[in-house]
């Protein structure tokens, strides 16, 4: 079996194809644990994991907590409102204080791009980026890749379209890096106010109109429209967005027959996705959530699980 040689997971950019395959294979073998009556193995017994969320998060934080607990790690959760940050402590000072308590792994969600990189330089513990600013959200990309591979049997050669606020989405950037690395063909769509400059340099096609962009696609990935962005003047109203860029059944019908529709959540029903589609036969949104636990278990195991083989008993 290949070795995972990284101390931290900061972004998809750092991973090789082999790394990604190893993570997905490991997740596949760990996924069964979550289907058992006793959903726990002792693999990470005696390891401590700190979940450090400077930004609100429900899904990602819960997913990490469950993943760590299923592997028997001890977990501690910090959020911005309960941490010393509200008392004015800097990230580096917080990191040094955490480090003094010898955790094995720190999961960091932060509103600033590059914050996990800063943390990783300061601590011996492994760091997982659970979303940094508008930059990356690598565990989301990995669970997306896992879900696509599970549904389609492969990633290479698939045609994927990502629709929404690409410019301000860490999910989009990580997915683009992961999908293109694994050989998928990626198109992005959305109003030009949501497409960053020089987008093509990331190896994707830009087709702003979703009606054109979804044609012949195997996968439609949607991004959450951050309603607070409306004040930043990047779209006039949710009504207008839904009308021109929202995904409804008619739009889905323009893609391949067996297209899957993905969304990182939380969804805005009636804005970027019509309820019919979110709950319809093409949707794999809840598979993504389930797979998120398996992928995060795999990462915890690969980063701090040591050399022992996965103990499924």
């Amino acid at each position: 079996m290949a070795e995972f040689s990284h101390k931290d997971l900061l972004g998809m950019g750092q991973l090789s194809i082999e790394d990604i395959e190893l993570i997905l294979d490991t997740a596949e073998s760990l996924k069964v644990i979550s289907t058992r009556d006793i959903k726990k193995v002792p693999t990470l017994r005696g390891k401590s994991v700190v979940h450090f969320f400077y930004e609100p998060s429900t899904r990602t934080k819960t997913s990490f907590e469950i993943a760590a607990k299923r592997l028997s790690a001890d977990t501690v959760s910090l959020s911005a409102s309960t941490s010393s940050m509200v008392k004015g402590e800097t990230l580096i000072d917080t990191a040094r204080n955490l480090e003094a308590m010898s955790p094995d792994l720190i999961v960091l969600r932060h509103s600033s791009t590059g914050a996990p990189h800063l943390l990783a330089r300061e601590v011996r513990a492994s760091v997982i980026n659970a979303g940094d600013g508008i930059n990356e959200h690598p565990t989301q990309a990995l669970l997306d890749l896992f879900t696509i591979r599970e549904r389609k049997g492969r990633i290479k050669g698939l045609k994927v379209v990502i629709i929404g606020d690409i410019a301000h989405s860490r999910v989009a950037r990580s997915d683009i890096l992961g999908l293109t690395k694994m050989g998928a063909e990626v198109t992005v769509a959305g109003p030009p106010t949501m497409i960053p400059v020089e987008m093509e340099t990331l190896g994707v096609k830009v087709v702003p109109d979703p009606r054109d962009a979804v044609r012949g696609k195997d996968v439609i990935m949607l991004l959450r429209i951050q309603l607070e962005r409306q004040s930043a003047k990047i779209f006039p109203s949710t009504r207008e967005y839904a009308r021109f860029f929202g995904v409804d059944r008619q739009l889905v019908s323009r893609a391949k027959k067996d297209v899957i529709v993905m969304h990182p959540g939380p969804i805005n029903r009636g804005v970027e996705i019509i309820p019919d589609v979110a709950d319809g036969p093409h949707s794999v949104i809840l598979d993504q959530v389930a797979n998120g636990v398996a992928v995060r278990m795999a990462l915890l195991y690969l980063l701090i699980g040591g050399k022992q083989s996965v103990d499924l008993d």
Partner: peptide
């Protein structure tokens, strides 16, 4: 600077 690097590394740009 807003350009190919800001797009790649996910930092808000100044055109």
């Amino acid at each position: 600077h807003e350009g190919v690097v800001s797009t790649r590394i996910g930092l808000p740009g100044i055109p």
